[in-house]
C-alpha cells in the first residue's frame, strides 16, 4: 500500500502546493501577519518544510523543534484559531490540487497532532 505522501504526489506535490498555500496564507488576514517576512524566498522554503511534514513525508522535525520553531510566534499571541486557519488553508490548497477528501483529512490529522507543540502547551 502506498503512503499518504506518495498518494498526494510527493516532492512534486509539495512544489505545486507551496505557491498556492503561501498565497492563501498571505491573503488571509487572520494569519498573514505571522508570515509576512521580508524574505519571501526564505518563507517559501520554510513552508515547503511545513507541507512535507503535513503530507507525511520525510522530515527531521520533532515535537521539540516545532515548539522552538513557533515559540516566538506564541509570544506574539499565536493560538488555536490560528492553527485552525492554517489547517483550513491547507485543506483548500489540496482541494484545488484535486487531492481526495480522505487524504486531506489525514493531512489535517498530522497537522493537528503537533498542535500542542506548536502552541507551547
Amino acid at each position: 500500500m502506498s503512503s499518504l505522501y506518495e498518494r498526494i504526489g510527493g516532492q512534486g506535490a509539495v512544489d505545486a502546493a507551496v505557491d498556492i498555500f503561501y498565497r492563501k496564507v498571505l491573503a488571509d488576514e487572520r494569519i498573514s501577519d505571522y508570515f509576512d517576512g521580508v524574505d519571501m524566498e526564505e518563507q517559501i522554503n520554510k513552508q515547503k518544510g511545513f507541507l512535507t511534514m503535513a503530507f507525511g513525508g520525510p522530515n527531521e522535525y520533532t515535537g521539540k523543534s516545532m515548539r522552538d520553531g513557533h515559540a516566538h510566534l506564541v509570544e506574539r499571541g499565536l493560538n488555536d484559531s490560528h492553527v485552525d486557519a492554517v489547517i483550513e488553508n491547507l485543506g483548500a490548497t489540496l482541494q484545488e490540487l484535486g487531492v481526495a477528501a480522505a487524504d486531506i483529512q489525514e493531512v489535517a490529522d498530522i497537522a493537528n497532532s503537533v498542535r500542542d507543540d506548536v502552541l507551547s502547551r
Binding site: V18, D19, Y22, R23, L26, A27, V38, M40
Partner: peptide, 15 residues
C-alpha cells in the same frame, strides 16, 4: 522590488 515581488506573486506568478 520587494513590494512588486509580492504583488506579482499574489497575482499568480510562481515564486
Amino acid at each position: 522590488v520587494n513590494s512588486l515581488k509580492k504583488t506579482m506573486f499574489m497575482a499568480g506568478a510562481s515564486m
